[in-house]
Amino acid sequence: MTVRLNAISIVVADMGRSLAFYRLLGLAIPAEADSQPHVEVDVPGGMRLLWDTEATIRSFAPGWQRRGSGGMSLAFAAEDAAGVDKMYAQLADAGYHGELAPWDAFWGQRYAVVHDPDGNGVDLFAAL
């Protein structure tokens, strides 16, 4: 039996707040999704990104508790180094916490890290 990664799921405290963050990253998420308990969008490459409210998770796992991201993050590629700087500035201007300001990483990328509203790491990068 073989498996393939098909979706990444994010548990959120506030659906609308979380989706607003990911819209700034360019994801096409309909406005009516803000009030839904579960949201899915297709992303380029055949993957899906899913969001579930904490209440949705607790509806089938009553003892569920937030564990944090545990070192995992989502990584979004920009077209170029200037795109990383622009996206980082846009997110910071919108009030999102930057963990690592854009810098030229030794591995050959312009690289930055911000946190989504639930504290998950979101990497921004582009080849130098």
Rank of each mutant, 00 (worst) to 15 (best):
A31H: 12
V122Q: 01
I10S: 00
R48G: 08
G95W: 07
I29E: 00
I29W: 02
P37E: 12
I8N: 00
V12N: 02
E54V: 14
L49K: 05
G68S: 09
M72Q: 05
R23V: 12
Y22T: 06
P37V: 15
Y22W: 12
A75Y: 02
S35W: 10
S35I: 15
W51V: 08
K86L: 13
W64P: 07
D80Q: 02
W51P: 01
A31C: 13
A28R: 05
V84Y: 05
G46H: 02
P62H: 06
G46C: 09
A55E: 10
N120D: 04
A82T: 00
A81I: 13
G71C: 06
V41M: 00
A28Q: 09
G26Q: 12
A89H: 09
E99H: 00
L100E: 01
W103Q: 08
F21W: 07
G83M: 08
R48V: 11
G26C: 03
R48K: 14
A7Y: 09
M47G: 01
V11A: 01
N6Y: 01
L50N: 05
L49Q: 05
G70A: 06
V113A: 07
R23N: 01
S73N: 11
G108K: 10
T53N: 02
H97D: 09
N6H: 03
P62W: 09
D52S: 13
W64L: 08
F76V: 15
